[in-house]
């Protein structure tokens, strides 16, 4: 995702969180999905059965494609906001 020539948009301070062991930065208060997209990370998990790669799709909490794991719980990346030091795991393939 890009801000391109959008200098007129003022965003909150950058913070960092961990996705699958890697440190990623994002703006405080934005969703995990937005921060990951900005960081160029779209491949979040693999589908059961077909094993095909998946990422955010509906971006409104309906499709469940963007699920990630926080504290052992599955949550939607598009509906979860980041916070400093948040540790996110990929959902393991089953």
């Amino acid at each position: 995702m890009t801000d391109g020539n959008n200098d007129h948009i003022l965003r909150s301070k950058e913070i960092s969180f961990i996705f699958d062991g890697v440190s990623v930065t994002g703006h405080d208060g934005e969703t995990v999905a937005a921060a990951l997209l900005r960081g160029g990370i779209t491949h979040l998990r693999n589908a059961p059965n077909s094993g095909t790669p998946r990422g955010m799709f509906c971006i409104m909490g309906a499709c469940q494609e963007c699920v990630i794991e926080i504290d052992g719980r599955k949550v939607e990346a598009c509906r979860t906001t980041i916070s400093e030091g948040l540790v996110i795991r990929r959902v393991p393939d089953v």
Binding site: T52, R54, F57, C58
Partner: peptide, 11 residues
């Protein structure tokens, strides 16, 4: 289903 495909409304 590829990552990088978004719904239009999603966008």
């Amino acid at each position: 289903t590829l990552p990088g495909v978004f719904g239009l409304a999603g966008a």
